[in-house]
């Protein structure tokens, strides 16, 4: 499996993601600049965290019009795997590849902490039997408050598109609807999540729960 980690101006978790995919996961991986117009030769694409285009207008709103995004839309339509982490999740929502939107945290503060998450039984790869019922993965965002209208939420529930929910003693860190921390599309090949799995993969990290998430995403488990 060969993975493309997309780089937008302002991405800042691109190298962490690259390292996680190449090192602990042991997959082939390239950093792909946003001006590229083709993703030929890749099996999966990862949109990393950061502040693409300085979060101008709305988070992810301008990255959505980067040249590589046209290729990404075709890539996703072909059934290839696409994962957006944090700002990458915001870009995927803005581009319509994932439902909903992410707005300012309800308390207006940037949150940066280890976050307990509940794993939802979403599909054959992403479920509590494979990942364990709970994980601890860092979050670091100011706009992670997931919003969708009532019929949209009902559809997410019905199609088991919710991947992860915020849990733990402190509960929901940003006011996200239904405690949603990550979702997938109906086809099950486009994933988005606010937590940063690439930050918990190495032996020297606080835990290695991120490996479970990434393996589920790349269908390696």
């Amino acid at each position: 499996m060969k993975v493309a980690v997309l780089q937008f101006p302002g991405s800042n978790c691109d190298r962490d993601a690259y390292r996680a995919v190449k090192g602990p996961l042991g997959l082939e991986c390239d950093l792909v600049w946003h001006k590229q117009t083709s993703l030929a030769g890749y099996d999966a694409a990862l949109l990393p965290g950061g502040f693409s285009y300085g979060d101008y207008l709305r988070c992810g709103a301008i990255a959505r019009f980067s040249p590589v995004m046209e290729a990404l839309v075709r890539f996703a339509a072909d059934g290839r795997r696409v994962l957006g982490i944090c700002n990458g999740f915001q870009v995927l929502c803005e581009s319509g590849l994932l439902p909903g939107a992410l707005v300012r945290n309800n308390h207006m503060k940037f949150v940066c902490q280890d976050q307990p998450l509940q794993v939802e039984d979403s599909d054959a790869q992403f479920n509590s039997a494979k990942l364990g019922s709970s994980l601890t993965v860092p979050i670091a965002h100011g706009e992670g408050n997931f919003r969708i209208d009532e019929p949209g939420l009902e559809q997410l529930r019905r199609n088991r598109q919710i991947l992860l929910r915020y849990s733990g003693n402190e509960g929901n860190p940003n006011g996200s609807l239904a405690d949603i921390a990550g979702v997938r599309n109906t086809n099950g090949n486009v994933f988005g999540m606010m937590p940063h799995p690439e930050r918990v993969v190495e032996p020297f990290h606080p835990n290695q729960d991120g490996l479970k998430v990434l393996k589920a995403f790349f269908s390696l488990n």
Partner: peptide, 10 residues
């Protein structure tokens, strides 16, 4: 403007 149904923390 934020939609009337969307919470506006700001």
């Amino acid at each position: 403007t934020p939609k009337a149904t969307v919470l506006d923390p700001q």
